[in-house]
Design a protein around this nucleic acid. Structure first.
Lengths: 205, 205
DNA sequence: TTATCACTCCCCTTTTTCAGGGATTTTTGT
DNA sequence: ACAAAAATCCCTGAAAAAGGGGAGTGATAA
């Protein structure tokens, strides 16, 4: 029984690479690829693969959202996240959204095959390098922010003062101050500078 | 006369993709690939290709430095930078370091061939999407900072206050304050928050 | 039907940063 | 050797942020 494989990635080179590596594998049935989340969802209306290799960064939708969406509609599909080193902060969120595993884009052929085998057995596959990176970077996990906090955070990063924000958002300056305190607490930052640095690294800004 | 092609990228999928796309091209002679800057330099001692496709991010050295190093030793080589969208800020630096062109990793086969042709004619190849992105982001140029200013900037980003920095660097708090004023002026930032945001985007932090 | 959470608002105090100056001493490049 | 750039130090006053409290409302989920 061949494993039906589909790929979503906006880099032709990556798609070509995987296709070239796996097209002669007897255990794999290459179903095709999509460059965008939209193209992926369209394809799934016609064919449902066993495994989807999915890039974290897509032009029209984040891989996070696409993953959730796909699994909501087609719960039997196994999703394996694809990423490069510097995007590891997203991976745990990807797993939270139901992905069965993740691979780094420098994975050799054997590792890709192993990952597909493992997730087909309904187990989780985590690449070694990546899970090590997770431990290192895992200490600084991105906090959960509310809508308003994200809004304020982004205005702070743009250089707005509390007074300016209060005028822009039609609330009191003390309200902004409260949001600010919550932001500092959630990021465990002692001042605006470290807050913005952390927020930028965690892609909030 | 075939064009001798070599690739430096730490993602197997990208290497496989390019190899698969170009291996049957009559105009291209595939010379091989390297995963690291070190491996690349070793290879070049034995064979000198016509064109090198070079990723901006390598594990052991930045593509910027590798590009400069390679061109210093082998000035006849043409280097084409490879990148994804979010690394465009590096591209202009890559060109400054002597690269002949750059491609995005979602480039189709035809574009890669065009790029190789163009740089072989000693012309520069800039991918359309990327050069557009350059224009947008090109307006905010990174200012020139002194050693001390970079030092202070990084400490600010880590959350140090002026007093803490003055103790760490064994200077007066007023000195730190002066550096800080210069930083704000150079970045045209009105406060610490926007300073750190800009500095992070420009890779100072 | 209570908690819980997000959002809002207020008080007070202290610390830190910003905005203006001005000025001296090292480095560094030519 | 000399000019330019960098690094150092100082003053004052105003503005902004941080630290520490408390508290009411509305929505929503258990």
């Amino acid at each position: 029984m061949k494993t039906k494989l589909f790929i979503v990635d906006d880099h032709y080179m990556v798609i070509e690479g995987i296709r070239s590596m796996l097209q002669d594998e007897p255990s794999i049935e290459w179903q095709g690829y999509a460059n965008t989340a939209g193209a992926c969802l369209s394809f799934l209306q016609l064919h449902v693969p066993d495994v989807i290799l999915m890039d974290i960064n897509l032009p029209d939708m984040s891989g996070l959202d696409l993953c959730r969406e796909v699994l909501r509609k087609y719960p039997t599909v196994k999703v394996i996240g694809l990423s490069t080193f510097n995007q590891l902060s997203f991976i745990s969120k990807m797993l939270d959204n139901g992905a069965s595993g993740y691979l780094l884009k420098n994975a050799p052929k054997a590792e890709i095959l192993t990952a597909i085998e493992v997730v087909m057995k309904r187990q989780q596959y985590l690449s070694l390098e990546a899970s090590e990176m997770m431990k290192k970077n895992g200490e600084e996990e991105a906090p959960t922010l509310t809508r308003r906090e994200i809004e304020v955070l982004q205005l702070i990063a743009e250089g707005y003062t509390n007074v300016e924000m209060s005028e822009k958002l039609f609330v009191s300056t003390t309200t902004i101050d409260t949001h600010r305190k919550h932001l500092l607490a959630k990021f465990e930052a002692k001042n605006t500078a470290s807050l913005i640095r952390l927020a930028t690294k965690m892609k909030f800004v």
